[in-house]
Design a protein around this nucleic acid. Structure first.
Lengths: 231, 231
DNA sequence: TTACATACCGACGGTCGGTCGGTAATCAAG
DNA sequence: CTTGATTACCGACCGACCGTCGGTATGTAA
């Protein structure tokens, strides 16, 4: 009765299952991703599955972790390499993180699409929380240093960081729209959308930071041209 | 075999079930609130239950609706009754909504406690979304009018409204802490916490609105004294 | 070859949300 | 007071689901 299946190393099997789970998650809300479905798609038995994962939620957690952890080090790296005054460092941070995000835009858009799906509210929150947890410390020190140097004049450091992150959060939705538009032939329209959005964020960022002298700059829309012309 | 139960009017039974559900939800995450548990606590059979509700989620929706809908009209009312310049109207709006919230603080704190529980992420989002959906239109017009009158100088109306709501959102967490502290005997400490928070929010609100002349004012901490001395 | 570790199997158990045929209380009409 | 329709209510039952468990097959090291 037993059907023979391939035997993999634990790691390979794990990633194989995670791949399948990610794939399924990109088309179904998590509650519809049955373990049975997962088993069939991954070509493994229930026992085999539970040999590698303790529960269905364990899979979700692993999927989310894999989707986010690559970005962890990026922001920190940029910060550690940055030089100059607070404004320059903040600008460098913005450029660095944005560039990194653009390089991984497909993955990020995928994650966002998943998180935005109805029924995936818990995923959405977990993801946002995780992203925040990772970015907050660096941003806190950046802002605090700026305040100490007299370059920024903020209402409150924590509140400012929180609002900055919130202000930037919707960018990817705009990016998605812009990409759609340019994919539909209206490249100029897409670029304009992007430009306006970045300009808005730049002004809001400067207002929140209360820059006393030089202004923080967001990356120019030109940097996004590659992004607007997908594969 | 049949156990005799009381026969209620449809409405009474519905509210009875909703009461029980709210009660249970205040101590368990929603997924742990089994239909069976609900039935036992409400003293009704499964058939009876499904005679009044189409699904378990139907109950949740009704509970949330009942918890939020009372607040719907409040903000709108305050706005419609307000007079004077944009700054005065905005201040009146803040005072009005805050006062209303304080009058219903117990209920609101209850809702927040529920929404903040692990496993209730979907509830949290639904609630926030609903609150936003209700408050945004009024705030939009308030800000837009202020811009038109030249009293506000805003980066972008929608973004500003969004950030304002976000900035105010954490207030209830601080309120909860303040109440705890004053309940523990440190009335002064509680009041100070509140005062600082409100001062912070006031400064942030003014910065976001970019008030050109007069400043918008948050309610004074004195108004919260009743809140700090609970039943 | 033996002994052990581990990748894997699938029948099974228990729980859950939801259905359905039936019963009894209520009420309006004759 | 009947009679008939409506509706609140009952609980056995269903299928889908997640997770367990005893057991098998494949590798690896002594």
């Amino acid at each position: 009765m037993n059907i023979k299946r391939s035997r993999m190393s634990a790691e390979d099997r794990r990633t194989a299952i995670l791949d399948v789970a990610t794939e399924l998650l990109s088309t179904h809300p998590w509650e519809e991703v049955t373990v049975a479905l997962l088993l069939e798609a991954a070509g493994i038995s229930k026992g085999g599955f539970y040999h590698h994962f303790t529960s269905k939620d364990d899979v979700l957690e692993a999927v989310l972790l894999r989707l986010t952890d690559a970005s962890t080090a990026a922001g920190q790296d940029v910060y550690e390499r940055s030089e100059g005054g607070a404004v320059a460092r903040f600008t460098a941070y913005l450029e660095g993180t944005t560039r990194w995000e653009l390089r991984h835009s497909d993955k990020i858009m995928g994650v966002i699409r998943i998180a935005m799906m109805e029924g995936n509210e818990a995923i959405f929150l977990k993801l946002e929380q995780e992203a925040r947890r990772r970015a907050t410390p660096v941003m806190r020190t950046l802002v605090a240093e700026g305040v100490r140097e007299g370059a920024f004049d903020v209402v409150d450091i924590d509140m400012t960081v929180d609002l900055l992150q919130h202000a930037w959060r919707m960018r990817w939705v705009v990016l998605a729209h812009a990409r759609e538009r340019s994919a539909a032939g209206d490249l100029f329209g897409g670029e304009t959308m992007l430009q306006e959005r970045l300009h808005l964020e730049e002004r809001m960022t400067n207002r929140l930071l209360g820059c006393t002298g030089a202004q923080v700059r967001m990356p120019r829309a030109g940097e996004f041209m590659d992004f607007l012309r997908p594969v």
